[in-house]
């Protein structure tokens, strides 16, 4: 059973590489039971999305209608 701390490492690594089957199952089981880590996973997705927009999609663009 993964601890939350271990789960954070797996969730971060998932942004770099494909997880192995065991890792995936362990993580899914953990997430089923842990709301904090489910939020953490979404927060990590958010960070990636934000980083992908740095510079190219700022609020100013929308304001100036680009």
């Amino acid at each position: 059973m993964l601890s939350c701390k271990e789960a954070t490492h797996v969730m971060s690594a998932a942004h770099e590489r494909e997880l192995g089957l065991r890792e995936r199952i362990a993580l899914r089981l953990h997430l089923l039971m842990c709301r904090g880590c489910r939020n953490y996973e979404r927060q990590m997705d958010f960070l990636r999305r934000a980083c992908g927009r740095v510079g190219t999609s700022t609020a100013d663009d929308k304001a100036s209608g680009d």
Partner: peptide, 13 residues
């Protein structure tokens, strides 16, 4: 035990 402290559990963004 490696689980979130109550006060530090990640929230909904």
């Amino acid at each position: 035990n490696g689980h979130w402290q109550r006060d530090h559990r990640p929230g909904d963004w």
